[in-house]
């Protein structure tokens, strides 16, 4: 499902706490990333809003987005899967 060919290169990005998941910085702005996009380490992938505080979700590695597991504006629980990345 994730599409990652090499399991050893599969990196999961999970929610550090519960919160609302946003794929774009504002309602009428572009998404941060799409499936297939190359990403740098520390590149912002999404925002997570918890109790009115926003934190940016950053890529832990350089690589390629294989899967976006969370829906935009979904309420995520702590440790829910957000992204699958194939490490470069």
């Amino acid at each position: 499902m994730s599409g990652a060919q090499n399991p050893s290169k599969r990196v999961e990005v999970r929610a550090p706490m519960s919160g609302v998941f946003y794929r774009r910085p504002g309602p009428d702005q572009e998404t941060y990333v799409e499936v297939g996009d190359p990403v740098r380490k520390k590149q912002v992938l999404a925002l997570l809003e918890t109790m009115k505080v926003f934190q940016s979700v950053k890529s832990p590695v350089a690589g390629k987005i294989m899967e976006i597991a969370a829906q935009n504006e979904a309420a995520l629980k702590d440790n829910d899967l957000m992204f699958v990345i194939e490490k470069a």
Binding site: S18, V20, E49, M51, A75
Partner: peptide, 8 residues
Amino acid sequence: ELPIFYDS
């Protein structure tokens, strides 16, 4: 359960 949507 503290809702995630409102302030702290």
